[in-house]
Computed example of a mutant assay.
Amino acid sequence: MPAMHPYLNFDGQAEEAFIFYKSVFGGEFAALMKFSDMPDADQVPENEKNRVMHVALPINEHTILMASDCMPSAGHVLKVGNNMYINVATDSREEADKLFNGLSEGGIIEMPMEDMFWGDYFGSFLDKFGIQWMINFTPAQK
Rank of each mutant, 00 (worst) to 15 (best):
F117Y: 15
F10V: 02
N60D: 15
E16A: 15
Q141E: 15
Y7Q: 11
Y7E: 00
K49L: 13
H54E: 06
F10R: 00
Y85F: 15
F29R: 02
G130I: 04
H5G: 03
A17F: 00
L32E: 02
D11S: 15
G123P: 07
T90N: 12
F18E: 01
L78M: 10
N101M: 08
N87A: 15
F100Y: 14
V44N: 08
A96R: 04
P2Q: 00
E28P: 00
V55Y: 02
M111E: 12
S124D: 10
A17N: 02
S36N: 11
N47R: 11
F35H: 13
L78P: 09
M33I: 06
T63C: 14
E46N: 13
N50W: 06
F100Q: 08
P58Q: 02
T90F: 09
F29K: 03
I135W: 04
E105A: 15
A41D: 10
E95T: 14
Q141Y: 12
K128N: 12
I64N: 10
P6K: 06
G123S: 01
N60V: 14
S73Q: 02
N87R: 12
I131C: 10
F20M: 12
D11C: 04
F100T: 04
I131H: 13
G123Y: 05
P72I: 06
D97T: 11
V52P: 03
P58V: 13
A140D: 15
L103S: 07
N83G: 04
M134E: 08
K22A: 11
S73Y: 09
D97Q: 14
Q13W: 05
G27T: 11
K79T: 05
D69I: 01
I135A: 06
C70I: 14
E94S: 08
A74E: 14
P2A: 08
M1S: 15
P58A: 01
F129H: 10
E95G: 01
L57R: 05
I64E: 13
A89T: 14
M134R: 08
K79C: 02
Y7I: 05
R51G: 04
M33G: 10
T90V: 07
L57G: 05
A96I: 02
A89M: 14
E16R: 02
K79H: 14
V77S: 10
M111V: 09
G119E: 13
K34T: 13
D11H: 07
E110R: 13
L65A: 06
G12Y: 06
N60L: 05
M4P: 01
V55F: 01
K79I: 12
M38Y: 06
L65V: 03
E114W: 02
A140S: 13
K128Q: 12
S73F: 09
F25H: 00
A96N: 10
F125E: 06
H54F: 12
